Computed example of a mutant assay.
Amino acid sequence: MRFRPCIDIHNGKVKQIVGGSLLDKGDFAEDNFVSEKNGDYYAALYRDAGLTGGHIILLNPAGSSYYEEDVRQACLALAAYPGGLQIGGGMNDENAAFFLDKGASHIIVTSFVFRDGEINYDNLNKMVKVTGKERLVLDLSCRKRDDAYYIVTDRWQKFTNVKLTETVLEELSGYCDEFLIHAVDVEGKSNGIEEDIAALLGSWDGIPVTYAGGVGTMEDLRQLKRLGRGKVDVTIGSALDLFGGPLRFEDVLEEIKGDF
């Protein structure tokens, strides 16, 4: 297990939000924390801690009046830690090269690949052509419906018809370097992980996977390591003291270094 840090940007600010509350209409989200610091502050912190594979997520759509400021914040972060951070949020084959040139290690994509509720292989291949398999991360963030987890798109607002299964993981792993999976129903709530998702990811042997959502205590972290069989990396947002939460950044790093 590795710790993968995050920089979530919404309405031009580094934030932590309740994931399921995000709406394009009115650029609304229920905020857990709004930072007065810019993206480069967090990027430098992660760089100095020697953390790799973290991600920046732009939470406003391209048509939002806040989008340009989101991008500015992201570029500050990428400049502070070139090659050390991935970026996602509205990525497609037309803008991916821009963010790679700005210093992103990988492009994270969901909505461009999952169109009209299905996997759009034409768009997936377009992304691979721009990024290469080695610089592409597929975000398979999901929400529960009818006792199954379905991949969701458009800032987690729309369900697809694609269930998160080992078969889907295996199929899509041929196109990308990693998976990022937010458990959206618990994202930002810090009240426990989605154990079924963690167990599914732990049972699959494939490319690296990062889990995000619900970690609020050290015991949640340990449970994720147990269910993920030590193979699943973790992102912690709202529960971290960097974002107003109770878990000390240094303590989390120390805990992950040791044996649970």
Rank of each mutant, 00 (worst) to 15 (best):
D101I: 04
N120H: 13
G12Q: 05
I197D: 00
V234P: 13
A97C: 04
Y150H: 06
Y67Q: 08
E36Q: 14
N191I: 14
G213W: 02
Y67S: 04
G228Q: 07
C75E: 15
L136M: 03
D241T: 14
K126V: 09
L247F: 11
T131K: 05
V162L: 07
Y81W: 06
R222A: 13
C142P: 01
V130S: 04
G192V: 09
D154M: 09
E30L: 12
V152W: 00
G19N: 08
S141V: 07
V128Q: 01
L227M: 06
D70R: 02
F112Q: 05
G245S: 06
E166D: 13
V128F: 06
H55L: 14
L164P: 03
G50E: 13
L253M: 04
G39I: 00
D205C: 11
E178F: 09
N125I: 12
R229P: 13
D31W: 08
V34Y: 06
Q223P: 07
M1G: 07
D185P: 06
E94C: 03
E219R: 11
I87Q: 06
G26D: 01
E195P: 00
W204P: 10
S190T: 15
D116Y: 03
E69N: 13
L240Y: 05
E195K: 14
G20H: 13
F99W: 12
G83D: 09
I108Y: 08
M91D: 01
L169C: 05
G103Q: 04
A212D: 03
G237C: 09
V232A: 11
L59E: 01
D146S: 15
G63A: 03
M1F: 04
K225D: 14
V128H: 07
D70S: 11
R222G: 11
K133Q: 10
D40V: 12
K133M: 00
G90E: 05
S111Q: 05
V128Y: 06
I107S: 08
R229M: 15
V14D: 10
D233V: 01
D48R: 12
F243N: 09
R145T: 08
G244S: 07
G12R: 03
T165P: 07
T110M: 06
R2V: 02
L240D: 01
Y150W: 09
I57R: 05
L221Q: 03
H55A: 15
E118W: 10
K158I: 00
D40N: 15
L124A: 10
A79E: 15
N123F: 04
D27Q: 02
E178Y: 08
I256K: 08
D31G: 11
I56Y: 06
L164G: 05
G245I: 03
A239R: 13
A44N: 14
K15Y: 12
E118Y: 09
S21F: 09
S111M: 01
V137L: 00
G84W: 05
D251W: 04
L124D: 08
G216K: 13
P82T: 02
H10N: 12
S141A: 01
E134R: 10
E255I: 03
Y66I: 12
Y150D: 00
D40Q: 13
E255L: 10
F112W: 11
M1K: 08
E30K: 13
A148Y: 03
Q73C: 01
